[in-house]
């Protein structure tokens, strides 16, 4: 399960909202307008089990999300869910990878401190001996033009 965010962790001015997440549970989150730029040359990597529970993160993931490794391992991947992301994007992600295919898209992620960061994400199923044992996501730096397109498009998808 994921805990509500804590106001004392948030940097700067923020808003509050309750997100309804998959599985029928909800999470109170706080979010600000502070963007963390994507670090040049790095990939942000995580792996989940078949249900989307995080099983592995790399250092860039820890640095960008603001959470510790202990807080991330065992948490659902929606710990990064930002309210500006349209649910349709994640439905498409899950529909695609559950078919055994690759999904690619631009995602705005929520940090532990309430700030956000944009990524270009690719998610693939980890298939071992014909069985999907989990999923891996690798994020790279998105172009400014692509992010600007998403900033216009995403609000229309709710």
């Amino acid at each position: 399960m994921i805990q509500d965010m804590k106001p004392e962790n948030i940097v700067g001015e923020f808003k509050e909202i309750i997100l309804n997440l998959y599985g029928g549970f909800s999470r109170k989150i706080y979010y600000s307008e502070l963007e963390t730029p994507y670090p040049d040359g790095k990939l942000i990597v995580s792996t989940t089990d078949p249900a989307g529970v995080i099983t592995h993160v790399n250092q860039a993931f820890i640095d960008m999300s603001g959470y510790t490794e202990d807080e991330l391992i065992g948490a659902p991947h929606s710990i990064l869910r930002h309210p500006d992301m349209p649910p349709a994007a994640f439905k498409e992600l899950w529909d695609t990878v559950q078919k055994g295919e690759k999904w690619q898209g631009f995602v705005k992620n929520l940090r532990k401190d309430g700030g956000y960061y944009w990524v270009k994400a690719t998610v693939i199923p980890n298939i071992r001996n014909g069985i999907t044992v989990g999923y891996t996501s690798v994020r790279r730096k998105p172009s400014k033009a692509k992010v600007d397109e998403c900033i216009k498009l995403y609000p229309t998808l709710f």
């Binding site: 990597v45 690759k102 690619q104 690719t122 071992r128 891996t136 690798v138 790279r140």
Partner: peptide
């Protein structure tokens, strides 16, 4: 090695 191959796979698209 499987992990590296999966990672390379995400980068080939």
């Amino acid at each position: 090695m499987e992990f590296m191959i999966d990672l390379m796979d995400t980068l080939k698209v």
